[in-house]
């Protein structure tokens, strides 16, 4: 279990790179890396040489999130101005522009089947669900407010939703908020199930294990990565080691490892059996905002790939084996 640097592109964007996701391979082309940046562009890169395929403009105020449809045909990007742009990966044709004011847009993710796009709705304390066929808002999963708090209470702000994650079976949706709590929803019944506690600082990234739909990993500003039994409401393990905020977490396709990106400029690889960091990559010169494992599939591509993006404007690609 190790990472080996393959390629780094300095100044991949003109400004900090804030988001990264892999667009799954289609019949006609391999998987592509999708990145979003403060420079208001979204770029597509071809591995392993990270050749720039496309440079999408049109966003304002910095791109905070990108997501790719499991089919690999469409993708979405979101910016600080709270617009989500859905576009055709290959042609860059805009398919839809989504907004659900006054809710802002943070992280987003397509469900495993590709029929719903879930968007973390910031101060609305909810997740917005968009139908990927009609691009209509189909539901809003709101985190119930504690009974005691009045709408004017400042505490209301704390359920600010930052991150979302679909369970691999598509039945559950988890979201992380500014106050550190993680909320679990039953998607089919559109029902809030419970909170997962343990973090008291913003949870900026969440991911379900691909091999065990109960296991959820969370990355928080408290420098820890937690491993929860999302159904049993219990904390399985806490992994410490990062010197600052953990900004991003992704799990390897084989489910044996997770990678994290942190404000401490490092990317770490964690062995889930040992629950310890086995490798630390320090090639970035500033905060690492995103890490993403390439999904399996595609024409004869078996090798594992991990991409990381950073405030230092660079993108790095690693071989994971």
């Amino acid at each position: 279990m190790k990472l080996a640097g393959l390629k780094s592109i300095e100044n991949a964007h003109d400004e900090s790179v804030w988001a990264a996701a892999w667009v799954p391979a289609t019949e006609s082309r391999p998987a592509l890396l999708l990145t979003g940046s403060l420079d208001e562009t979204v770029k597509l890169w071809m591995p392993d040489e990270l050749v720039l395929q496309q440079n999408n403009t049109g966003h304002c105020l910095g791109v905070v999130a990108v997501a790719a449809h499991p089919s690999g045909i469409i993708a979405a990007s979101a910016s600080l101005d709270s617009f989500v742009r859905v576009f055709d990966v290959d042609t860059n044709a805009t398919i839809a522009t989504l907004e659900a004011p006054p809710s802002e847009v943070w992280q987003m993710q397509f469900d495993p089947k590709g029929s719903i796009l879930a968007v973390a709705g910031g101060s609305s304390a909810s997740i917005k669900l968009w139908d990927t066929a009609t691009w209509k808002l189909i539901d809003t999963l709101a985190i119930p407010r504690p009974e005691s708090s009045k709408p004017t209470d400042r505490g209301g702000n704390k359920k600010f939703v930052l991150s979302v994650a679909w369970s691999p079976d598509g039945r559950r949706l988890a979201c992380g908020s500014m106050d550190g709590t993680i909320s679990i929803f039953d998607v089919n019944r559109a029902k809030f199930l419970h909170h997962l506690e343990g973090h008291y600082m913003p949870v900026r990234s969440l991911v379900y294990s691909p091999v065990d739909p109960r296991v959820l990993f969370s990355a928080s500003d408290d420098g820890h990565v937690h491993m929860y039994d999302a159904e049993g409401k219990s904390l399985i393990g806490a992994m410490s080691g990062h010197a600052s905020w953990v900004l991003s977490v992704d799990v390897s396709p084989d489910g044996a490892a997770i990678a994290t990106g942190s404000s401490d400029k490092t990317v770490r690889l964690w062995d889930l059996n040992m629950r310890a960091a086995v490798q630390t990559m320090s090639n970035h010169a500033d905060q690492v905002w995103g890490v993403a494992f390439r999904p399996p599939g595609g024409a004869g591509v078996r090798a594992g790939r991990l991409a990381s993006v950073s405030d230092d404007k660079s993108i790095s690609l690693y071989d994971y084996s």
């Binding site: 403060l38 105020l61 600080l80 910031g122 101060s123 930052l162 500014m178 913003p202």
Partner: peptide, 9 residues
């Protein structure tokens, strides 16, 4: 914008 990104709320 960087600050907003760090402190969204």
């Amino acid at each position: 914008l960087r600050a907003i990104h760090l402190a969204p709320s």
